[in-house]
Design a binder for these strands. Sequence first.
DNA 1: TAATTGACCGATC
DNA 2: AGATCGGCCAATT
Length: 117
Amino acid sequence: MNGAAESILAVVARVPRGKVTTYGAVAEQAGWPRRARLVGRVLGALPAGSHVPWHRVVAAGGRIALPEGSRAREKQMSRLRQEGVDVSAGRVDLRRFGWRSPAVDLDAWLWRVGDEN
DNA sequence: TAATTGACCGATC
DNA sequence: AGATCGGCCAATT
């Protein structure tokens, strides 16, 4: 297990029930900006017994990224619905169900303060 | 060794 | 709304 996978899974593990985030957002929050594909690879390689809530990660714009007709896609949608997330036409409304780690805002705030000198 | 692929993304037209 | 493009890069072919 390398550090990238660990930091990525740590971010995914923080996504609360009933909320979703995106591959790109996870990558950014994990310290690997523009590495959305890395997030997809890591989640795709999760062992079967993992407790990581991979189903709360969707593609940009709220699209379900898994291939249509795949077992994993159906599982993701049913799990999301089970926790109260509306999924219609293979999409989730990020304005209602999107989630971002508070740490991002804190970092932004710290940066802004630092820029004043 | 080279080319292709993919659970991606944002900008641009 | 859909298509293209460049960025990204490890795994697979």
